[in-house]
Design a protein around this nucleic acid. Structure first.
Length: 877
DNA sequence: ACCTCCCGCCATGCT
DNA sequence: AGCATGGCGGGAGGT
């Protein structure tokens, strides 16, 4: 397989035409082997649709089918034979088939349903391309060819590609053509998604739903409160729509494509992934996922049909994700019964962070010609192309300038798809010692920054919410608690709260986000509503998360790290890039409710904006926009694009390289990410924590309690200790920490598993986790394994053995997995590559809030009521 | 009987 | 108009 992949490398697309006998294809993947410079006509060949079975003249078709059904290897072999024989070979092919099968059998031989499963198809698809494609090579994918080669309808290929696209493993080049990026961007993408998920408070939503269920079981207040809560959690508005989250450098190039509004499968896929990334146990049941996904759209109509449809779609997505080895099917056994669920087996990810890019960031500036701001937005802002110019912006000013430049570039940049190079970048990346180290460093930096920021925050009163980065610059104050906020609000008021905004600045909603993280700066417009929401006074919550801790402590050697380390100051100085964070754009206020779109491409953004406007009356936009603009100006010249509500708009920026650079910027911004997060969430009822506290430790704010959950006093008391934020990522050492500890305690107590007095603590500081934690972790072994596998192995084997776990049941409470695994080792490299391929691409949206997300996440985890779930892993397929 | 989810109709929207 | 996309849900295979 591997070999094949590599081979494919060069020949991403090759089509196998029946006509052509490709003897040559001796290579295992003969199919792939051919490289056709020409892809076939753009027009799609007719669907391969199945050939009517049995038709005499279509033996080949049958053959194909059979082959496709067969394992790739077999397939190849057969092909070789059959094909080699040649066209006439058709007969032979038949013969071959027939060898094993006689007439009836022959029919039977037709692929069974399973053989046609999307998962299997996806494996075949993935087998065609290397996990880490050489950017230098042609990695184009011709959908028609693939469909033909795999003997499936093109429709099915879309299903696969859409999911891959959601992970930025492929990007659309043009009509029928996609570019294969493999896993180079995966970690980054996942980091971004995690950040976005945090922003959206998915963890909270999950908790809400679980809680609800839990309550129902017990007949607590079940109905009333729960539903209300749930709805509320989803957003008062009704929901937050998320836009497709794009990464810099990986955007949709084809304008046409972009335009499509739906993308639902893509968006669903991203959301689904977010759920895993954000939830503590990292196990998400289809039911919960469907509810959340539906909820966003329409909480109210949970009609059955809709639910069923959603589930169907989730299965489709899950099959692809399973093929990618990012998730694995398991069953969660609750009192009610067994429910299908999936467990994340992919790499652990730090919010945004991800791997840093190596040090240098590139300036995008100059690259592209200016365009109108709209265009920029629309097209996305980041241009990837850039060359690597390093931009360290010591000061904001510089950032601003750079941003402007970027902006120009962007604007100017044609939408045309372009990819550029990148090989070099990859090379560059190579130098870095280890991604891990970098990551670790990053994490540290972030943490430090966060702490520092928190302090600052204390000082300051409030700040606009803008998610992220910008805050730093702006300065903001609030501690945030994202977590707290999330919890509280979510439960009660759900997301509506958004971010916030206390600060004076806040009034002016628009904020520019320097985008430190992403690298690109975004302008965000808040909806009036948001603003309102935001306003809540709140306190602080404390939590700050440490996103990346998990990274294992390794320090990064990278420069970045150092910079990050610099504590403080939000400022710009940190050159390094952080991670991924930047990429994601979040919605400003986003919280769930309102609007939401996070990042999206410009197009989407616009669309989203429109939607939101429609939904809500747009009123505010103008004002907010104006404000924003003003703010922006004030900040810098940076031109901001306006978008209605809550979207982040990238102001400028960098190309993929830029991304990194962007990151650096972000960093500059200051650890913003963490900080920002904090700020962002406005939490309502959260327990205020002093900043200092925050800085010091993560306090999870456990405010959670407010939730309707019934938290016992004791639990509450405990809560403070725990801090969620840190947990998630950090922890290796202390897995237990989870934010959820409080929850756990709560749960355990209720369950009677533990005495009230006992609580599981997850103190961040202490880190130690007492007994109960273990419980939570129980599942870990398997998980870890999975994770590791995923990370490490990813390359080739498409499917690492999942099966081991089969049948095992694990109790999971809520813990995250502490997997030490380094987050993507490949990242560095990949990023580089990334850039290359995507070169010119622009990012659409980037989200900032990683940090916030982290907090949220942790919060979310806290809540999770799952008291105990038994998870049985089974291999699927 | 339920879980999965394949299949392909048909709407949508770009060319 | 034609074609590329992909939403959607009927209904069948698997257990």
């Amino acid at each position: 397989m591997e070999n094949d992949k590599e081979n494919h490398f060069f020949e991403p697309h090759k089509r196998i035409l029946i006509k052509t006998p490709q003897k040559e294809s001796t290579t295992p993947n003969s199919v792939l082997a051919e490289i056709q410079s020409n892809l076939g006509p753009l027009t799609t060949p007719t669907k391969p649709k199945e050939i009517p079975p049995g038709e005499p003249w279509t033996p080949t078709a049958n053959l194909k089918m059979l082959i496709s059904a067969a394992s790739p290897e077999i397939r190849n072999r057969d092909q070789k034979r059959g094909l080699s024989d040649n066209r006439s070979g058709i007969l032979e092919a038949k013969d071959c088939l027939h060898e094993h099968l006689s007439g009836d059998e022959y029919e039977k031989s037709q692929p069974s349903r399973k053989e046609k499963s999307l998962g299997l198809l996806c494996h075949k698809f993935l087998a065609r391309y290397p996990n880490y494609p050489n950017p230098a090579v042609n990695n184009d994918i011709c959908l028609d060819e693939v469909a033909e080669e795999l003997n499936v309808e093109r429709r099915r290929i879309y299903d696969i590609v859409n999911v891959l696209e959601s992970l930025h493993m492929v990007s659309r080049l043009a009509k029928n053509r996609y570019t294969w990026h493999g896993r180079h961007n995966l970690n980054k993408t996942l980091g971004t998604l995690k950040s976005v998920g945090m922003e959206n408070k998915y963890a909270e939503q999950i908790m809400m739903i679980k809680k609800k269920e839990y309550e129902q079981e017990f007949d607590f207040n079940s109905d009333k409160n729960e539903e209300a809560a749930v709805k509320s959690s989803f957003g008062q508005n009704g929901h937050s729509d998320m836009c497709f989250v794009e990464l810099p450098g990986v955007e949709f190039r084809a304008a046409s494509v972009n335009s499509r509004k739906d993308k639902s499968l893509r968006v669903m896929s991203q959301k689904f992934v977010m759920l895993f990334l954000v939830s503590t146990p990292q196990i998400v049941s289809l039911e919960v996922a469907a509810k959340i996904l539906i909820g966003e759209d329409h909480v109210e109509d949970l009609d059955k049909s809709k639910f069923k449809t959603k589930i169907r779609r989730l299965y489709d997505i899950a099959n692809v994700l399973s093929s990618l080895e990012l998730i694995k099917k398991v069953h969660v056994t609750e009192e009610r019964g067994r429910k299908p669920a999936f467990k994340w087996t992919g790499p652990e990810i730090c919010p945004n962070s991800t791997v840093l890019s190596p040090i240098t960031s590139f300036d995008s500036s100059g690259l592209e010609p200016p365009q109108s701001s709209k265009e920029q937005c629309a097209k996305n802002l980041f241009s990837t192309t850039g060359k690597p110019s390093f931009t360290r912006h010591p000061s904001l000013i510089k950032l601003v300038k750079s941003i402007e430049n970027d902006r120009r570039k962007i604007s100017s940049a044609p939408s045309s798809p372009i990819k550029t190079n990148k090989a070099e970048s990859s090379l560059k990346s190579a130098p870095f010692p280890s991604k891990m180290a970098q990551l670790a460093a990053i994490c540290k930096m972030q943490l430090e920054e966060q702490s520092s920021e928190l302090k600052k925050v204390k000082m300051q009163l409030t700040r606009p919410t803008v998610h992220c980065q910008s805050l730093d610059f702006l300065a903001s104050p609030e501690p945030n608690r994202t977590m707290a906020s999330s919890q509280t609000p979510s439960l009660i008021q759900p997301l509506s709260v958004l971010p916030l905004i206390h600060s004076p600045l806040s009034s002016a909603v628009p904020v520019i986000v320097p985008h430190a993280h992403s690298g690109a700066s975004y302008a965000i417009y808040l909806h009036p509503s948001q603003a309102q929401t935001v306003t809540s006074p709140n306190l602080s919550s404390t939590v700050h998360t440490v996103p990346c801790t998990n990274v294992t402590g390794v320090q990064g050697s990278t420069e970045n790290t150092n910079t990050h380390l610099l504590p403080t100051k939000m400022t710009t100085e940190k050159v390094t890039s952080d991670v991924v964070k930047a990429d994601v754009t979040t919605k400003p206020g986003k919280a769930l409710p309102t609007s939401e779109g996070q990042t999206s491409r410009s197009d989407e953004r616009e669309a989203t904006a429109e939607r939101s406007l429609k939904r809500q009356n747009v009123q505010e936009d103008n004002n907010s926009k104006k404000k924003l603009k003003e703010d922006l100006k004030g900040l810098e010249n940076v031109p901001a694009t306006l978008f209605p509500s809550g979207y982040l708009i990238p102001l400028t920026q960098c190309s993929s390289l830029g991304t990194e650079s962007i990151l650096s910027h972000k960093e500059n911004t200051g650890a913003c990410s963490p900080t920002n997060r904090i700020y962002n969430s406005p939490i309502t009822g959260v327990i205020p924590v002093t900043t200092s506290d925050l800085t010091t430790v993560n306090f999870p704010t456990f405010h959670v309690t407010p939730l309707k959950l019934m938290v016992s006093p004791t639990s509450v008391g405990t809560v403070p200790v725990v801090n969620s934020p840190s947990l998630p990522s950090s922890n290796h050492s202390i897995p237990v920490q989870n934010p959820s500890s409080a929850i756990v305690n709560f749960t355990l107590q209720h369950l009677g598993l533990i005495s009230p007095g006992v609580q599981v603590s997850a103190n961040s500081g202490a880190g130690s986790i007492p007994v109960s934690p273990r419980i939570e972790l129980v599942s870990a072994p398997s998980e870890n394994t999975g994770l590791q596998q995923g990370k490490v192995t990813k390359h080739e084997s498409p499917v690492p053995g999942h099966s081991q776990l089969n049948g095992q049941s694990i109790t999971v409470a809520a813990g995250q997995q502490p997997v030490p695994v380094t987050p993507k080792g490949s990242q560095l490299v990949s990023e580089n590559f990334f850039r290359t391929p995507g070169g010119p691409t622009k990012l659409l949206a980037s989200t900032c809030d990683d940090l916030d997300g982290a907090h949220k996440t942790s919060l979310g985890s806290l809540f999770v009521p799952q008291r105990k779930l038994e998870v049985s892993t089974e291999d699927v397929h």
